[in-house]
Amino acid sequence: MNNIKNIKLTGFVKAILKKEYPLYMSKDFSSKIMKQINKPSRGYNFFNYGLQIASAMTFAIITLFVMDSVLTDKIQYSKSSINQEVLSPTRNVANQMEKCEDTKDSIQSSDGLKCK
């Protein structure tokens, strides 16, 4: 029997004889505590600090690269300048009064207006 197991059993015997025992107990109770104790502390040493900055910068660069490739590739810019003057004349419909024609006997042209 190994030493740790023997100590555990002696502890159980003493607890039972003293009537200070729980009805049940996890088998991995001690290993859970030892895991916590052996967990490396997260102190802010120089290495950890540098590592955090490096990972943040790497993440930022990758993000910028992805954004750049996604946003710029799909935009199709017009080859002509947007400041170019519009050459065709505009027609202000609101201000223009057109003459009406009496179309009694004559054939109505497609553009002519009928007098009321």
Binding site: I7, K8, G11, K14, E20, P22, M25, F29, S31, M34
Partner: peptide, 13 residues
């Protein structure tokens, strides 16, 4: 771990 194993039952109780 020796200490834990020795006293775990009594402390949990």
């Amino acid at each position: 771990e020796i200490i834990i194993n020795k006293y775990q039952a009594r402390i949990i109780s």
